[in-house]
Design a binder for these strands. Structure first.
Length: 924
RNA sequence: GCCGGGAUGGCGGAAUGGUAGACGCGACGGUCUCAAAAACCGUUGUACCAAAAGUACGUGCGGGUUCGAGUCCCGCUCCCGGCACCA
């Protein structure tokens, strides 16, 4: 018998028994409810798992284990996100092929996951690079293609010069590639896209139906970036003169503005009226328009340039050239001085007929809206800066309030609102701050003068629609998902370029298009895929038996991870990606756990695909993940030193990273210890292997659960691990000490016993603990789940310590407590639970036992502690029998000596009684 | 700038508007030991007081609602994460 926690003597033994018994094989029994719990599947890196990964896997494991014990059919799978850049880059670095390398790494991940006792059903595992899996990824590509959701087009795309491939917008952070950190360049090449924009509105709306962290939902809403406004066409004129005013235009006079809305389709015919579209969310400010801006890439620019002086043409060409050379990062840098050039043409403001100059400026992006704006410098900071720099007039749209002017003065006393307003009207550029509000009436806005945003916007929108020059429109920032990668290690795109250059899908029976086994697969770097240089792969007969070319781009890794949760439902199906029956049974995922860094990548793409599957009738759910939780990171102390003379720090670094060995060679004060995320490059990784070796798997599990709230970051400490060992040891000792009293048939016997005091107290603790642990696991409050267990162990010890001669009832209550403690411990510390279960003479596994149920009657206290306050301040506490009435309690409260001291000389005005909790006597 | 989240003892953190600091770590004192480690027992928010009793103060800051606020409302500060010239 073990009276302390000695993991080396039993943890491996139980892991072996679980495996032999296939304890975690998924069961599907009609009578039971299902529970689908899942972790983000990892890319298996050569560095192996750190305890940081365990912070993701252990809590999910606790939930799944409890759900199983509660009688659910549990699906708790794990697989590997094997395709993609990280794997390929690592293989290149190691001069090996990614396929065998990934197999080896995945095997190591599995070994480590087993080491900490995670209850995965390995029989359902797969890698996204398995042909039996990517066959169906290709099948889904074809599904998207057939539904008009996959297309190929020339586009200006993000090119990562380090990884030598294009990347999706979601993979770019602040102008740099998320993976390689390289500043991305623009490349104009044909690329494959998935039309996620078709689902923009649904992707926003359905966020309301799922239980996800607010932050992730907000990030997705932000990324999709919906805004409502008006898009309308403006005529181009080459004369600066003023035209007719708005009031002279009758509604219905469409002919005057009847021009081709798409500038690309316009012929450079001098007789033809040029025009361009703009999008605005503030149509109410249209009377304040004093210029227009086209992005340098705008298609209309050539046509305008063709009709202006040579001098202007030169300036335009030069400016466009300049803009081309800038990276997106430079171009969109904050506080960048505005640049631009006047085109020589004018736009006609449809609201008042005024001609305003059309400028070219790179602060207007070609990729958003129409690539052109109406500029209202009074109300828009960017437009104002531009107007100031290029000396363009500013027309006020609203009268700013006093506060607006006050910010330009040293004190309020100086403010003379009347004269400030007068000077603002003379020239708003004196105040370098744009002002616009929704609840301030418009000025100088024709018949809309005096209206507020809501009314003016609505009526101007109606007017523009009636005039036929535009419409109210919803605009999204979200752009289509760029899926092609010019890299080897990914899922081949199942498309053939026919002899005529037309696109043909590879016929379904011919799937999968195998990734060819090759010796050299390094990226070419010229924008072509390595597959393009493999003749046997490229050359292929097309549908009509003519020579065609295979598509040589592969799909980015996020394609593979956008449906794997469906494959887990039916992983060995050779005929379908998944069977309808299996998906209907298991989907949606009830609980999905992983890092917050995938907020707008994986999590958005997976939602998109699920919606497509729903529309195709392949699944019955609109959302894949019902509940999402993000675990906090595990941070480790990492040594840095101060930079020496001439050394520069990387952005965001606080010192020069040094190794732990190197740190020892420095004086104590010269080493800066910082908490940073565990990573191989920082040399601060603690592996589950070492943690298990030193402290045991269960101690590691309990520590990770207890140390902080689930979603908070954790500072790794061995002291905390030691505490966890101590706690488990206390349990072993406690159960060993109490075991002589243990009777296995306590359940039937207890019913006949009158409970004495220690027995009653013990049972109360038992049933309270069952309730709290169960609720807290469901609420993802694993730290308090562990606290309740600790408190429970303390209570059992305290009661046991006070009992001199144990009664029969007490012995039975102890028996109940022993079993309950072991079972409640089981999800968190399953090895110890099974070992203790065996120690008390049981056979089998706690995993197969029923989760304890609590009896509310037994959990109820029989005395209640009443807090007694005088004027809201605690003065005394009273122990009263449960069931004491209000009168009785208030009486006792008033009788308290301590209370009376504070009531002296005062009159009681009011007494508040909260049943079972508190009396507050209000007196003065 | 915008969007999200947060701020509670020496530390990690508990707390359906109702006794703030559960549980743990650390620290201090003790038991055991030749000694140490481990283990066990006790103390541990701050101030006043020799101590106890007691009193006052106390959940980032300033107001408010309430019999009662860590919790709700208004206005700030700082920290973390995300987005950012998106018209």
């Amino acid at each position: 018998m073990a009276d302390r926690y000695e993991p080396s003597t039993f943890e491996s033994k139980w892991q072996q028994r679980w495996a032999d018994e296939e304890l975690f094989a998924t069961r599907e029994e009609e009578a039971r409810p299902k529970f689908y719990g899942m972790d983000f599947f990892p890319y298996p890196s050569g560095a192996g798992l750190s305890v940081g990964h365990c912070r993701n896997y252990v809590p999910t494991d606790v939930i799944c284990r409890m759900k199983y014990m509660q009688g659910y059919n549990v699906l708790h799978p794990m697989g590997f996100d094997a395709f993609g850049l990280p794997a390929e880059n690592e293989a290149i670095k190691r001069k090996t092929h990614p396929a065998p390398m990934i197999d080896q790494y995945a095997a190591n991940y599995k070994r480590q996951m087993d080491l900490v006792g995670i209850s995965y059903d390995w029989s359902r595992s797969f890698k996204s690079s398995d042909p039996s899996y990517y066959k169906w990824t290709q099948w889904i590509f074809e599904l998207l293609y057939k539904r008009g959701l996959a297309y190929r087009k020339m586009a200006s795309v993000n090119w990562d010069p380090v990884d030598k491939t294009v990347l999706a917008d979601e993979e770019i952070v602040g102008g740099r590639a998320e993976r390689s950190g390289a500043v991305v360049e623009k490349k104009w090449i044909p690329q494959w896209f998935f039309k996620i924009t078709d689902y923009a509105q649904q992707l926003i709306d359905d966020l309301d139906t799922i239980d996800w962290p607010d932050g992730i939902k907000a990030q997705q809403r932000n990324w999709i970036g919906r805004s409502e406004g008006v898009q309308f066409t403006m005529k181009v004129s080459f004369e600066a003169e003023r035209g007719v005013g708005h009031t002279e235009l009758g509604v219905g006079e469409k002919s005057r503005y009847d021009l081709d809305a798409d500038p690309e389709r316009q012929t450079p015919n001098a007789e033809r009226q040029l025009g361009f579209d703009v999008f605005t969310t503030r149509i109410d400010t249209i009377f304040g328009m004093t210029f227009c801006v086209l992005s340098p890439e705008h298609a209309l620019v050539d046509q305008i340039a063709a009709r202006v002086s040579l001098e202007r043409q030169g300036a335009i060409r030069e400016y466009r050239q300049q803009a081309k050379l800038l990276t997106d990062t430079d171009r969109t840098a904050v506080n960048r001085e505005k640049t631009g050039v006047f085109t020589g043409a004018y736009a006609v403001n449809p609201a008042n007929g005024k001609h305003v100059p059309i400028w070219l400026a790179d602060y207007v992006l070609a990729t958003y809206g129409t690539g052109a704006i109406m500029a209202v410098p009074a109300g828009d900071q960017r437009d104002l800066e531009f107007a100031v720099k290029f000396d363009i007039p500013v027309t006020p749209i609203q009268n700013p309030p006093k506060e607006f002017f006050a910010q330009f003065l040293k004190s309020w006393e100086e403010l003379d609102y009347e004269s400030a307003l007068r000077s603002y009207h003379e020239d708003p550029r004196r105040y370098p701050q744009a002002y616009v509000a929704k609840d301030v009436p418009l000025i100088d806005a024709g018949e809309y003068t005096g209206m507020l945003f809501d009314e003016a916007s609505r009526r101007l929108g109606e007017w523009i629609e009636a005039l036929g020059i535009g419409e109210r429109k919803v605009q999204y920032k979200l752009r289509d998902w760029l899926i092609s990668r010019q890299r080897y290690w990914g899922c081949p795109i199942p498309v053939i370029h026919g002899a005529e250059g037309e696109l043909q899908l590879v016929p379904e029976p011919e799937l999968p298009v195998y990734l060819p086994p090759v010796d050299h697969y390094e990226p070419a770097g010229d924008g072509s895929s390595p597959l393009a240089h493999i003749d046997e792969f490229v050359n292929v007969c097309d549908r009509d038996g003519r020579l065609g070319r295979r598509e040589t781009d592969t799909m980015g890794g996020f394609a593979c991870s956008s449906w794997y949760f469906l494959r887990f439902c039916d992983p060995h199906n050779d005929d379908e990606a998944w069977s309808q029956k299996a998906a209907d049974y298991w989907m949606p995922v009830d609980c999905y756990v992983g890092g917050a860094e995938h907020a707008v990548m994986h999590l958005l793409y997976a939602r998109f695909w699920t919606k497509v599957f729903f529309d195709a009738g392949l699944v019955k759910v609109r959302e894949p993940f019902l509940r999402l939780q993000n675990q906090g990171q595990v941070l480790a102390l990492t040594p840095y030193r101060k930079p020496k003379e001439g050394e520069k720090l990387d952005i965001g670094e606080e010192g020069i990273l040094i190794s732990f060995d190197e740190a020892k060679t420095y004086e104590e004060g010269d080493v800066l210890w910082r908490w940073s995320r565990m990573s191989k490059s920082k040399g601060n990784v603690v592996t589950p292997d070492e943690a298990k070796e030193q402290y045991g798997a269960d101690a590691l599990r309990m520590f990770l659960l207890f140390v902080a709230p689930f979603n908070a970051d954790v500072n790794w400490s061995s002291e905390g691990m030691q505490g966890s060992v101590r706690f488990l040891s206390r349990i072993f000792r406690l159960i060993t000490d109490l075991q002589p009293l243990y009777e296995s048939d306590w359940r039937t016997l207890l019913a006949f016993e009158e409970l004495d005091n220690p027995a009653k107290e013990l049972r109360r603790a038992t049933h309270q603990t069952i309730q709290r642990c169960t609720e807290d696991i469901d609420r993802f409050q694993f730290n308090t789940y562990v606290s309740w267990l600790m408190k429970y162990v303390n209570s059992i010890s305290d009661v046991a310590g006070a009992v001199k001669s144990p009664s029969r009832a007490y012995g039975l209550a102890v028996s109940e407590a022993i079993e309950t403690l072991i079972l409640l411990l089981s999800p968190g510390a399953p090895h110890s639970a099974d070992e203790l279960w065996e120690q008390i003479g049981k056979t089998g596994f706690t995993y197969r036992e029923e989760w304890p149920a609590y009896d509310p009657k037994l959990a109820t206290e029989d005395t209640m502690t009443i807090a007694v306050q005088v004027n809201g301040k605690l003065r005394d506490t009273l122990d009263m029998a449960v069931g004491s009435g209000e009168a009785e309690v208030v009486e006792a409260a008033k009788a308290s000596k301590k209370v009376q001291t504070h009531l002296e000389g005062k009159t009681i005005r009011k007494v508040i009684y909260i049943p079972g909790k508190l009396v507050n006597i209000v007196a003065n």
